[in-house]
């Protein structure tokens, strides 16, 4: 059980896919202009990661080593198709925003990377923890990024078209944050903040010794 929690925490913090492993970046930067679509993107990634890890890990003894990558891709592609069609049917407004990013989950390095690096080598229980941890780590970062970009870039946060939180009237919203350079810039500063946290931790450790 401890191992299970450790794996889960690993994905959330220590090896956060976006901040630490630097995988699955494309979707993050592109989608994080809106909290709502980011949230659904995160859910889609969690679903595909969990289902893919579950299947790949349960069949890991059967899949021949030489053809494992095509097998992973087919498994992942099937689950992405499930998400693609479900979202198109039940969340057409979100699907219109996400568009090409939903089929692109299939080539997202995060999913294939975890299948290869974790699910193929570990038992089912741990693989589920890894999928959940990595997926939640992805969701938290992408929604956080979107929260910052949408709130300060447009002056309000919207959910299903209705503004939920608004900054005071007259706030000069810098549209650059929701345009594409904002994605790179915000992520760069977020990464610098993570580095600063690391440096601070190291210093504290040294002081403790």
């Amino acid at each position: 059980m401890n191992e299970w929690i450790a794996t889960l925490r690993n994905g959330l913090m220590l090896e956060n896919p976006l901040m630490r492993l630097m995988i699955g970046l494309c979707a993050t930067l592109a989608v994080s202009t809106q909290v709502e679509s980011s949230f659904y993107m995160g859910l889609a990634v969690i679903f595909v990661l969990l289902a893919g890890n579950l299947i790949i890990s349960s069949f890991r003894g059967v899949i021949p080593d030489q053809v494992r990558i095509p097998v992973f891709i087919v498994v992942i592609a099937s689950f992405v198709t499930v998400v693609d069609l479900t979202m198109k049917a039940y969340l057409p407004a979100v699907y219109a925003v996400l568009g090409i990013w939903i089929p692109l989950i299939v080539v997202n390095c995060l999913i294939l990377g975890r299948a290869e690096a974790f699910a193929y080598r570990n038992p089912v229980g741990l693989s589920i923890a890894d999928g959940l941890g990595m997926g939640l780590g992805f969701l938290i970062v992408i929604v956080g990024l979107a929260f910052f970009r949408e709130l300060f870039g447009t002056g309000s946060l919207a959910w299903t078209g209705e503004p939920v939180v608004s900054l005071p009237e007259g706030y000069p919203a810098p549209a650059i944050l929701v345009l594409f350079p904002g994605g790179f810039l915000t992520f760069g500063f977020l990464m610098a903040a993570f580095n600063a946290l690391d440096i601070w931790r190291e210093k504290r450790k040294e002081a403790g010794e």
Partner: peptide, 12 residues
Amino acid sequence: FKGNAIAFITAG
């Protein structure tokens, strides 16, 4: 900002 952080800012 060393490493990837500055790379992102540059790309921005």
